[in-house]
Amino acid sequence: MNALVFIEYKDNKIKKSSLECLSAVKGDSHTIQTCAIGAGSDQLTAALGAWGVTKHYSCTDVDTYNPELYKNFVAKVIEQTKPDVIVATSNNVGRDIFPRVAAQFSMAYMSDITEVEMDSDLEVKRPLYAGKCTAQVTFTDDSGKILLLRPNQISVVEASESVTTENIAIAAGAPSGQSETLSVEKGESEKLDLTEAETIVSGGRGLKEAENFKLLHDLAAPLNATVGASRAVVDLGWVPHSLQVGQTGKTVAPSLYFAIGISGAIQHLAGMSGSKNVVAINKDEKAPIFQKSTYGLVGDLFEIVPVLTEKLKSL
């Protein structure tokens, strides 16, 4: 199989989510080629050699995000590499570029993939209805495939090959005049997005008022966690919608999820159902959240959370 992996990186380091994509395609029978766009995208070859990547396509003359220029770059790489399968991360960038690529090249497309097996036949699974069920993704013809993998689902395997990766520079095409990026302002948050986070501390109406989210930020600090929220408190305007976990918010899959003062509406339970371990702290022992939790603490969150924060700081 001829695979093309779209690589994302930060500070000259390949992101973990992209290593997961490389891990998914790694196998003796596959040719792996990669592509990346942005300043420094040509500096990744040393790291890619360990993954057996023969050719890396890079484009350094676009550094500000623009969906049209990114998509045109990927299209140029596809014309040169003719991949059977393209693998990328199911995030805001992947979801913004690859549907257009799929339409241009008439390729099969699927996002949010949680399980993939490429050794013999292609086997792919993903959740539906925000995790209320899962289904197998069946490809009905032999057209090329674009697979977007949800972060934190595929284990990163050890890369131990010593291939020399050739860097091939691709010039960005001229913009069409149809679209222009006016501004990109990086958020202050150094935290991972909810969809990529290993640990999430989520709060709900039990926090009683917006200011009390400080308790969750304090707890998140020693855990290096990302803060999330239930729909109820987003609708109350306590926190922005980007923090919402649930069917009309984000679907998350961390190793550890804290649900604090969240009773557990069906939409929230669906959105967090990919979490490996769930800790619920709630004053109501009958709250539905406890049915979907690994560990339950019934009590006053205003007493428990500060004690937990101090304990974690002391570790």
Binding site: M107, A108, Y109, M110, L128, G131, K132, C133, T134, A135, Q136, V137, T138, F139, T140, D141, S143, S273, A280, E285, F290, Q291, K292, S293, T294, Y295, G296, L297, V298
Partner: peptide, 21 residues
């Protein structure tokens, strides 16, 4: 049509929550 969903599964039941007193 190139892509179909097949073999649906409901999530496995979680083991009972450990309540800490």
């Amino acid at each position: 049509i190139k892509v179909k969903f097949t073999n649906f599964e409901l999530p496995a039941e979680k083991p009972a929550c450990k309540m800490l007193g």
